[in-house]
């Protein structure tokens, strides 16, 4: 069996099959192409290596020519400690986690419920509602930032009651809930789902809401995990909206906090140490949910 698999794998080259590689010209093209790709991969990773190297350089070594640096390079991890000390990473991480988790939970619930309704129940005017949802995908966030900020300043209904939500977690969580792309990915998933489950549950006397919570949500765990990871990274990485809405250091998200470090004018090795610390959660998330991240990226692209 193993042998068969191997034999099959040997045929997987499609542009340069092995019988064509005997030709010298083809082999040269193949080699050059490979060298180009590998060089590209190395070049792409060099910034990260350089980041770690800088973070481990002592302060006097930073502003020296590369030859000298390479000659007497001694790794020094003390800057990571210093970066951790000068920036309240715990607060930033806590804030970001709280916001991202709350927003993701809300998004998944709201968007999947709407998608289920649009896909299976089809209330009157559902097509118009769908079109309205779809139109928001096309609209860039930058254009609605100003009115959204004004709305957050006077949240509520004008003349009855208003609260200032600027500099609160709500200002970050609430606008993140309106992510139309989720609705469409969920909808395309539910469209493929057979109606039997729903009808069986309806015969058993479940209400529509309990059908959704007890049957549909447990079935669609796979898509929910994909969308959760994807939305989590989106909210985690967001910078533009927090920059507008958050001014108090206590509610800074991680990205804002990192940005403030560079504004303070810290030395580059400390900045790089902080940056490398800030990248750890994302990389851990990717290491754990690699499949979900890749599938989520594919879904969103193919939907658009």
């Amino acid at each position: 069996m193993a042998k068969r698999v191997k034999m099959y794998k040997e045929e997987t080259r499609y542009l340069f099959p092995s019988y064509e590689l005997k030709d010298k010209k083809t082999r040269v093209i193949y080699g050059l192409w490979g060298a180009f790709t590998v060089t590209g991969a190395v070049l792409v990773t060099i910034p990260f290596i350089w980041m770690l190297v800088t973070a481990m350089l002592p302060a006097e070594m930073i502003f020296k020519p590369l030859k000298e640096v390479m000659a007497n390079f001694k790794p020094d991890a003390s800057h990571f400690v210093r970066a951790w000390e000068i920036t309240p990473f715990q607060t930033y991480l806590f804030n970001t986690f709280l916001i991202a988790l709350a927003a993701v939970a809300g998004q998944i619930l709201i968007c999947s419920a709407a998608a289920y309704s649009l896909s299976k129940l089809r209330p009157p005017f559902y097509q118009a509602v769908m079109l309205l949802f779809l139109s928001t995908i096309l609209i860039p966030f930058e254009t609605i930032a100003v009115p959204l900020y004004l709305f957050m300043r006077d949240f509520g209904i004008e003349g009855i009651f208003t609260i200032n939500l600027v500099n609160t977690y709500w200002a970050l969580i609430l606008p993140a809930l309106a992510a139309a792309i989720n609705i469409f990915i969920f909808k395309s998933f539910f469209d493929k789902m057979p109606n039997d489950f729903i009808e069986a549950a309806r015969v058993d006397g479940y209400s529509e809401i309990s059908i959704f919570f007890r049957i549909i949500l447990p079935i669609s765990k796979a898509i929910i995990s994909v969308m959760a990871v994807l939305n989590f990274t989106t909210i985690w990485n967001s910078f533009f909206w927090p920059l507008i809405v958050i001014n108090e250091p206590e509610i800074y998200t991680l990205m804002l906090g990192i940005y403030k470090i560079i504004e303070e004018g810290q030395p580059w090795n400390v900045v790089m140490a902080a940056v490398s610390i800030s990248m750890i959660p994302t990389l851990v998330l990717f290491a754990v949910f690699q499949r979900q991240v890749m599938r989520g990226v594919l879904f969103t692209t193919l939907q658009e």
């Binding site: 709407a114 309704s117 928001t136 609209i139 009115p147 609430l174 809930l177 309106a178 529509e208």
Partner: peptide, 19 residues
């Protein structure tokens, strides 16, 4: 199905269509 659609409509109304 309206009851399931309602939260999304409200959220989008306030944070997308209205802005």
């Amino acid at each position: 199905g309206f009851e399931l659609l309602l939260p999304a409509v409200l959220v989008f109304l306030f944070f997308s269509w209205f802005p």
